[in-house]
């Protein structure tokens, strides 16, 4: 028996919004420690890794490890049927071929359940090694989303250059060129407005804008985003989900021929 409950459907809706543009389907691996999903996008350029800890749920029970392959478009249709303040419970029997989403209104007067067929997905699982990154940047998630959106107008690619002075995002194309420089902040009133740069070595990396923009669909989940970079390895874009877990996106760099 598997059962996981969140007192508010908003978080689950936001999580799905953060992954459904990149992934058509995904396997939710459930164990007593929580729920994990790892999947590459269709073109195998990026990887999504979602971790939801069992202690972050309002109720969590998982008697046996369970892998549930779900079509994320179908899941999105179902979650649209939940009000933001509904309690959502995800339920499945052991070895079941369906999963049930139950939504309960705050006053308990409306209870709906939606059963969805599970899929057998043959997805490759990649081992991601613990890495010490040359540069780690923490910045407001809204600011990162804004920069990715703005620079995508100028080029398919953005160059991220990080030094101890700051981080610079650049794009150049037919129209011209664009540069956005952010300096590390000192003495900001609110922690969520801070820009913090931890640098061991400077890095310059090139990434495809369309994936960065897809990652920023996670912005509603977190005030801050963390970018971890080292030369010639994938960028990690991490959004923490308060008291529940995190979503990490790995993006393969563009490398000069």
């Amino acid at each position: 028996m598997f059962e996981a409950r969140l007192n508010n459907a908003t978080t689950l809706k936001k999580i799905l919004d953060a992954i459904k543009d990149l992934l058509n389907e995904g396997t939710f691996d459930c164990s007593d420690s929580g729920i994990q999903l790892q999947a590459m996008d269709n073109s195998h350029v990026s990887l999504v890794s979602l971790t939801l800890r069992s202690d972050g749920f309002d109720k969590f029970r998982c008697d046996r490890n369970l892998s549930m392959g779900m079509n994320l478009g179908s899941m999105a249709k179902i979650l649209k049927c939940a009000n933001n303040d509904d309690t959502v419970t995800i339920k499945a029997q052991d070895n079941a071929d369906t999963v049930t989403f139950m939504f309960e209104s705050q006053n308990q007067e409306k209870v709906s359940d939606y059963e969805m067929k599970l899929m057998n997905l043959d997805q490759e699982h990649l081992g991601i090694p613990e890495t010490d990154y040359s540069c780690v940047v923490r910045m407001p998630a809204m600011e990162f989303a804004r920069i990715c959106r703005d620079l995508a107008q100028f080029s398919e690619s953005v160059v991220i250059c990080c030094t101890k002075e700051g981080v610079k995002f650049s794009a150049s194309g037919d129209v011209g060129s664009a540069n956005v420089k952010l300096a590390q902040t000192f003495n900001v009133d609110k922690e969520e407005e801070a820009i913090v740069i931890e640098m061991q070595e400077p890095v310059v990396l090139t990434f495809a804008c369309r994936y960065l923009n897809a990652f920023t669909k996670a912005t509603p989940l977190s005030n801050q985003v963390q970018l971890s970079m080292s030369a010639d390895v994938p960028l990690v874009v991490e959004y923490r989900i308060a008291e529940l877990g995190h979503i990490r996106y790995y993006l393969a760099p563009k490398i000069e021929d």
């Binding site: 590459m40 195998h44 350029v45 990026s46 990887l47 490759e124 699982h125 990649l126 081992g127 991601i128 090694p129 690619s157 090139t206 495809a208 390895v233 994938p234 790995y250 993006l251 393969a252 760099p253 563009k254 490398i255 000069e256 021929d257």
Partner: peptide, 14 residues
């Protein structure tokens, strides 16, 4: 021009 790499070339299959 820079060439897009694939994510699978950086991580080992499990």
């Amino acid at each position: 021009t820079a060439k897009q790499t694939k994510i699978g070339s950086f991580f080992e299959k499990e």
